[in-house]
Design a protein around this nucleic acid. Structure first.
Lengths: 197, 197
DNA sequence: CGCCACGCTGGAACGTGTTCTAGATTACCC
DNA sequence: GGGTAATCTAGAACACGTTCCAGCGTGGCG
């Protein structure tokens, strides 16, 4: 799996980078207000000061745009977590705590979270590279929290996958109002038991 | 949590029941061909022989329609599984096998699966009752496979939740082409280890 | 400096989910 | 059977994601 389908992104000029950031920022702002449906492409374009066609040149669909927003946010969380890792003896507990911390970060802007997660799960194959990237960051977040001194075992990697599934699905469940935060915590803790088998 | 938001569904006449089934059947058929995007409300209405407004009276949105389709399909799987439960000693293995069997059932109509699962994860709060129903059926499927002789313990229920999360998220991952069937099986087996702790 | 290729702009246009309306049909009650 | 309220029909209309196009800037190259 090389980077073949994406044509090796030509480097952006400064103005282009600025436009890209303006678009992402606008999208996040609109999403924070009204969630997925409040992110309307025409409005994003207008508020970001670009033409609709340009917006689509940068992000080929609304889903691409919101998944890119998620990448952005996750990376911020990741940096914060690396600067201030959670304390604790048990790796499982550290992972659960780290994810719960991220969770509370999302909770602070629930509408934004809704928009990003809806996009993430609604994404079809044309977005799979970007979604994969998000998945990779999440996995890395978990691995970081485990604080390994040696490469992870096969069993640990399998456990990480299940934790990631649980994290993702629990998020969806919470966003649709079908589970409480407390329930999410319990689910994550349950999944994290797999780390210390 | 009573059934208050849904006004206690007035019983349908025979003609109405037939219409409902015709709509569901048409939706499944279109989905089987071209997935989520091939289920177009106008076309469903036309092929099912009802007016567009009527379609919307029965299913208030495309997502509702497809989630109802999923309910339908899952119930069929559930009945089949109850008639022919999987063999085996280990409860964890039985659960994993049961879910993999259901998985292969979905695999037989991948486009239909795509449509139903996309709808399920895209559903917002207005569909949460229906999504919850799907979740309940899935949970029951797992509990059935465990073959309990006494009520499940708290730990078992927690494990079932994580297995359900894993099932759901693995399905999404497979549908978007980011995981193979083999990987899905591994993930499910990993999650099922939680049952025999 | 002149020219070219490329990116950007404004805006029209299209497709599909969803809503609305006016009138026909049906189901139910007396 | 007649009256009435609910349901169904056909079709227009609207909203928003997406595509497309013609022309304008702009930055780099001879």
């Amino acid at each position: 799996m090389t980077t073949s389908p994406r044509p090796a992104a030509p480097p952006l000029t400064e103005r282009q980078e600025a436009r890209r950031r303006r678009i992402l920022h606008t999208a996040a702002q609109l999403a924070s207000r009204g969630g997925f449906e409040a992110v309307q492409m025409r409005e994003v374009a207008e508020l970001a000061g670009v033409a609709l066609g340009t917006l689509y040149r940068y992000f080929p669909s609304k889903v691409h745009l919101l998944v890119a927003t998620m990448q952005d946010q996750l990376q911020i969380f990741q940096e914060q977590t690396r600067k201030h890792p959670v304390e604790g003896e048990d790796p499982g507990a550290r992972v659960a705590d780290t994810l719960m911390r991220t969770f509370r970060g999302l909770q602070r802007e629930p509408q934004l979270a809704e928009a990003m997660v809806r996009a993430l799960t609604f994404a079809d194959r044309s977005v799979s590279a970007e979604v994969d990237q998000v998945s990779r960051i999440t996995g890395q977040l978990i691995l970081d929290a485990m604080g390994l001194t040696e490469p992870p075992t096969r069993e640990q990697l399998a456990a990480v996958r299940v934790i990631e599934h649980t994290w993702h699905s629990a998020l969806v469940t919470w966003l649709s109002g079908r589970a409480s935060i407390a329930q999410v915590r319990i689910d994550l803790e349950t999944a994290c038991k797999l780390l210390t088998l």
